[in-house]
């Protein structure tokens, strides 16, 4: 039994955890703590440092400096205990394609020393959870991408981990399969009560699933809280105006007393205001007076994308379009 001092027990605690590669700070002094039993999202664009952070927490890589505890165990000094407490689903597939689903699961159970008499029952229970009970005897190379991912999630759970790490669990999957995966993840958290730590760059999906989230950019945490808190932190509504407004126009808007912030990207002005529905006519009138051509207007509550945009001045999608990432994604698909 672990003793906790009044507060909820911590699944993860990091203290100025850093990882440098040839002077590049992939993870830059991250300190965070995650309560047991939560679904925690590490959000950010590709290359933000999410995967590096996770690889340190799962003892795959040694930190350059700082320390971290996973399930109460130190990641460098008690790596073996950490490994026993966690399950991992990597970003890239890590199944043995030549083996059947059952053989992959049995192999995992043996590597984690799950008692023999428990194995069969545990495996049956888990494949039902991810809906693969009919495919146990099939070779994994005949599986679709979504099935492989579900099998990996089941595999990560065979040894009753306290914490499950999911690195981009839905990347490269079609929308329907993605929704299914998120359902399984929520179900898991409810039925097994395990802490789930996931990374994703799909902000809308994170919003629906995560109870808490940290937004990471360039190796640093730039915002943390529940999705609600993060979005409410921005305050008000966002009016998106598609128009040919120039920079002067943006500055003029930003100068108005009832406008909280204005961000411009891809020919869209995002104007953050209170009581958005009342401000739309005012804004439109102003635009017309200044001779700005408005194509369309929409009103919405801030999303996690807006939170990211607010803190970094750019959208996650802009980051995604970088050629290097596109290459990486393509490579990944080829491997499937």
């Amino acid at each position: 039994m672990k003793l906790s001092s009044g507060t909820a027990a911590k699944a993860i605690e990091t203290n100025a955890l850093s990882k440098h590669y040839n002077g590049l700070k992939a993870v830059d002094a991250i300190s965070l703590s995650i309560d047991e039993g939560t679904i925690f999202g590490l959000l950010g664009p590709n290359g933000a440092g999410k995967t590096t952070l996770i690889s340190m927490l799962v003892t795959m890589r040694k930190p350059t400096s700082g320390s971290a505890k996973v399930n109460g165990f130190d990641i460098t000094r008690q790596a073996d205990s950490v490994r026993k407490s966690i399950g991992i689903v990597f970003q890239d597939p890590s199944l043995d394609d030549e083996l059947t689903a059952m053989e992959n699961l049995e192999l995992h159970a043996a590597l984690y020393n799950v008692p023999r008499q428990e194995r069969k029952e545990r495996i049956e229970e888990l494949v039902k959870l991810v809906g693969l009970e009919k495919h146990l005897k099939m070779q994994v190379k005949k599986f679709s991408g979504g099935m492989k991912r579900r099998l990996e999630i089941a595999r990560g759970l065979v040894h009753h981990p306290k914490i499950l790490f999911l690195d981009e669990p839905t990347i490269g999957l079609d929308p329907q399969t993605r929704a299914g995966i998120w359902d399984y993840i929520k179900k898991l958290n409810e039925s097994e009560g395990i802490t789930i730590i996931l990374t994703t760059h799909y902000m809308d999906e994170a919003d629906k699933v995560c109870q808490k989230a940290a937004i990471i950019d360039s190796g640093k945490i730039i915002a943390m809280g529940s999705p609600e808190e993060l979005k409410n932190g921005l305050g008000g509504d966002i009016i998106s105006i598609k128009c040919d407004a120039h920079e002067g126009c943006r500055e003029k808007l930003a100068g108005l007393s009832w406008v909280k912030a204005v961000l411009k990207h891809d020919g869209i002005l995002n104007v953050r205001v209170e009581k958005g529905e009342e401000k739309i006519p005012k804004l439109l009138a102003l635009m017309e007076k200044n001779g700005v051509n408005v194509e369309s207007v929409s009103l919405r509550k801030p999303s996690l994308d807006d939170v990211f945009l607010h803190f970094t001045g750019r959208t996650i999608r802009e980051d995604e379009a970088k050629p290097a990432d596109a290459m990486r994604l393509r490579r990944k698909f080829m491997r499937r």
Partner: peptide, 14 residues
């Protein structure tokens, strides 16, 4: 290593 399975063994508690 290329097809990822190596990771599964590398993070196992053995």
């Amino acid at each position: 290593r290329q097809f990822g399975f190596l990771k599964e063994t590398l993070v196992a508690p053995i």
